[in-house]
């Protein structure tokens, strides 16, 4: 799911490629909260998150011509840039060795500024996410939010590499199951 409809997104994409800054502003309005929220989760510092969010949007602007819609959705592409930029920043500050592993309990933020249309969805989300069992939550946190390699996770948790791979699959599949119901709502 994304905040812009597919046609709207195609139109905005074309305008941005033509150098239209007001179209880019629309893109920012639609996705900045998701990106800022995610990089804050990775960096655990609002100040650093602001810098990284800015860098991310600059990169999106700069490299918008290399986005290939055949390879995936625009939002996915933007999230990848945000995550990579955040993890690079995390590595530079040397925080990567000592992650504070967040549980989803502490990680779920109810969005501010009336972004969430239905309170039912927000309340439901907490319950959905909490259904992910702890060994899968920790894997997602290490890899997705702390940029650990699979090998590093295996060493950190003292489990075989094969188990890490299996758990990644299980974790994403479980997330998918959890969100399947949610997809019908949004």
């Amino acid at each position: 799911m994304s905040r812009l409809g597919k046609e709207e997104e195609t139109e905005i994409l074309q305008k941005i490629r033509d150098g239209d800054r007001s179209a880019f502003e629309k893109l920012y309005d639609a996705y900045s909260a998701a990106i800022y929220g995610m990089v804050t989760k990775i960096l655990r510092s609002e100040e650093a998150a602001e810098d990284v969010t800015q860098d991310t949007f600059v990169k999106i602007w700069k490299y918008i011509h290399s986005y290939d819609s055949q390879k995936g959705k625009l939002f996915t592409w933007m999230l990848n840039i945000a995550r990579n930029t955040a993890i690079d920043a995390l590595r530079k500050t040397g925080n990567v060795g000592k992650p504070k592993i967040q549980t989803f309990d502490s990680a779920v933020h109810i969005s501010e500024g009336g972004k969430t249309e239905s309170p039912v969805i927000t309340i439901g989300l907490r319950d959905f996410v909490n259904k992910l069992s702890p060994e899968y939550r920790i894997i997602v946190n290490y890899i997705y939010f702390n940029g650990y390699t699979q090998k590093e996770v295996a060493e950190e948790l003292d489990i075989p590499l094969g188990t890490v791979k299996t758990r990644i699959r299980k974790a994403v599949q479980d997330l998918r199951k959890i969100f399947k119901l949610l997809l019908l709502w949004i």
Binding site: M1, S2, E25, Y28, D29, S32, A33, A34, I35, Y36, G37, M38, T40, K41, A49, E50, T53, Q54, G72, K73, F75, T76, L79, A107, V108, H109, S111, E112, G113, K115, T116, L125, V129, Y144, V172, L175, R176, F179, L182, L183, I186
Partner: peptide
């Protein structure tokens, strides 16, 4: 799978400070 991760990212939405825009 990508949609799943998108929702996952959206569930931690936080509006950035207005000056950032």
């Amino acid at each position: 799978l990508q949609s799943t991760l998108e929702i996952f990212a959206l569930q931690s939405e936080v509006s950035p400070p207005p000056k950032l825009k």
